[in-house]
Amino acid sequence: MNPQIKIHDCSLVFHLYSDPTPTLKETVVNLLLRRKRVNEQREFYALQDINLDFQGGDRVGIIGLNGAGKSTLLKMIVGIYPPHSGRVEVHGRVTPMIEIGTGFDVELSGRENIYLNGAILGYSPHEMQQREQEIIEFSELADFINMPVKYYSTGMYGRLAFSIATMTEPEILLVDEIFSAGDAHFVKKGTDRMLHLFRSSQVVVFVSHNLDQVRQLCNKVVVLHRGRVVNHGEPDEMLKFYESEIVNSI
């Protein structure tokens, strides 16, 4: 089957608790005193009635204001947030570039973190061994690779995380805003690398606030607003819609 993503009637609710850390003691005391449950909760639809279908060749840009549900949508596709109703179907090897560098252990060396990070993403040491050299070269860390990550500068840290995340051959690529890290030289190199991944992947879902990038890279755009898909279609049309209907109406 060709790589594709099908999202059918999905809704996802966050419960906002007035007390996010309830204790057994409080619960028991409230029960004994027959006090009404004090831990009120408010429902908040992060995503509502989402129906989307992405096929091979699609380069989908997801745009929307802060809190529109863009990142949550990506996290739902990966399986981090299971939807409360609906169905998500994913066919193909997924490479998420959502929160890169998750699980870095600062006490360990850069090289050890390559394997640790790979393991967290479900890769075997053997698979990581094949990429190790490429990652080290791309990150330009050279001798620093054997030093604990806690001595790295922010740029070095970002370069390593970026290099690990991008040394893959994805079928489905999910990108959240991450384009590059480090100095001007590395940004150029990182952008090239990302463009290469965009071209070689079969399906790309790209969340971004950078509308120029979306215009250049995507052939489909989805406009999210307050958890709903308000419009989707051709990039130029959608970007115009987004700027006139959503950005200007606030």
């Binding site: 399986g79 169905r87 066919h91 090897r93 490479t95 479900g122």
Partner: peptide
């Protein structure tokens, strides 16, 4: 990559 990602279906 882990095989789990080849086809995954989640239905609430």
């Amino acid at each position: 990559m882990a095989e789990r990602n080849i086809v995954s279906v989640f239905d609430s």
